[in-house]
Computed example of a mutant assay.
Amino acid sequence: MGRGENVLKKTYLQKTLAFIDSETELLHLKIRYPEQFCQPSKQTFKSDLYIIPKSKGLGIIGMAEIVVGLFLSGEVKDKSGKAVSLTLLAQTFEHAFNFSFGSIYDKQDALFRRKPFNLTRTLDFLKSLIHRKDNTINNR
């Protein structure tokens, strides 16, 4: 056996012993301070709300219109106060309303390919519902 092989074996054994020592120290710390090592259980949120994917007034493209509009406003922030990404905003809506965009970027492209008079179809639909309700309240 050459000298080089012994050096490699010694180095390997030293690293192995150092690893075992660090794992042993970690176990001692876990025993001594167990509360520091408790991981919160991840509870998955399951919404009771649903969007009908091909609904005339508010389908997936309609939801994309809302999500893209909110994203472009830059007014939806994360915990640190930074504007959220389009992907995060889309995922939040997907979880809240139990549907999937597939790719939000594909839906955004489909939205921008609409004819100019249809670009805000869903927002116009929602606006008309609010106006209609407002008129019925004011006419009482």
Results as ranks from 00 to 15, higher is better:
Met1Tyr: 03
Gly2Ala: 14
Gly4Pro: 01
Gly4Ala: 09
Gly4Asn: 10
Glu5Lys: 11
Asn6Gly: 12
Asn6Val: 13
Val7Trp: 10
Leu8Gln: 11
Leu8Ser: 11
Lys9Arg: 14
Lys9Tyr: 09
Lys10Ser: 08
Lys10Leu: 04
Lys10Trp: 05
Lys10Arg: 11
Thr11Pro: 05
Thr11Lys: 07
Tyr12Gly: 08
Leu13Thr: 07
Gln14Phe: 10
Thr16Asp: 14
Leu17Pro: 01
Ala18Tyr: 09
Ala18Gly: 09
Phe19Ile: 12
Ile20Ser: 10
Ile20Tyr: 10
Ser22Phe: 13
Glu23Ile: 07
Thr24Lys: 08
Glu25Gly: 11
His28Lys: 15
Leu29Tyr: 06
Leu29Asp: 07
Lys30Val: 08
Ile31Thr: 06
Tyr33Lys: 15
Tyr33Cys: 12
Pro34Leu: 08
Pro34Arg: 15
Glu35Leu: 06
Glu35Val: 06
Glu35Lys: 12
Cys38Val: 15
Cys38Ser: 15
Gln39Lys: 12
Gln39Arg: 14
Pro40Ala: 07
Pro40Val: 05
Pro40Phe: 03
Thr44His: 13
Lys46Leu: 07
Ser47Tyr: 09
Ser47Leu: 09
Ser47Phe: 10
Asp48Glu: 13
Leu49Phe: 09
Leu49His: 11
Tyr50Glu: 05
Tyr50Trp: 08
Ile52Val: 04
Pro53His: 08
Pro53Met: 08
Lys54Met: 05
Ser55Arg: 08
Lys56Ala: 07
Lys56Cys: 02
Leu58Pro: 02
Ile61Gly: 02
Ile61Phe: 03
Ile61Tyr: 02
Gly62Val: 03
Gly62Phe: 01
Gly62Arg: 00
Met63Ala: 05
Ala64Glu: 00
Ala64His: 00
Glu65Ile: 00
Glu65Leu: 00
Glu65Thr: 01
Gly69Trp: 02
Gly69Glu: 00
Gly69Lys: 00
Gly69Asp: 01
Leu72Trp: 06
Val76Glu: 02
Lys77His: 13
Asp78Asn: 14
Lys79Leu: 11
Lys79Trp: 10
Lys79Ile: 09
Ser80Phe: 04
Ser80Pro: 01
Gly81Phe: 05
Gly81Cys: 05
Lys82His: 05
Lys82Val: 02
Ala83Ser: 11
Ala83Cys: 11
Val84Gly: 02
Val84Ala: 01
Ser85Glu: 00
Ser85Gly: 06
Leu86Gln: 07
Thr87Ile: 15
Leu88Lys: 13
Leu89Gly: 01
Ala90Gln: 00
Gln91Met: 12
Gln91His: 15
Thr92Leu: 07
Thr92His: 09
Phe93Asp: 00
Ala96Asn: 04
Phe97Arg: 03
Asn98Leu: 08
Phe101Thr: 02
Gly102Leu: 09
Gly102Tyr: 13
Ser103Phe: 03
Tyr105Leu: 10
Asp106Asn: 15
Lys107Gly: 02
Gln108Thr: 12
Ala110Gln: 15
Arg113Leu: 06
Arg113Gln: 09
Arg114Lys: 13
Phe117Ala: 15
Leu119Asn: 04
Leu119Phe: 14
Thr120Gln: 05
Thr122Trp: 07
Leu123Pro: 00
Leu123Gln: 06
Asp124Ala: 12
Leu126Arg: 03
Leu126Gly: 01
Leu126Ala: 03
Leu126Gln: 05
Lys127Ala: 08
Ser128Cys: 08
Leu129Pro: 06
Leu129Glu: 10
Leu129Ile: 12
Leu129Tyr: 05
His131Asn: 08
Arg132Lys: 11
Thr136Lys: 14
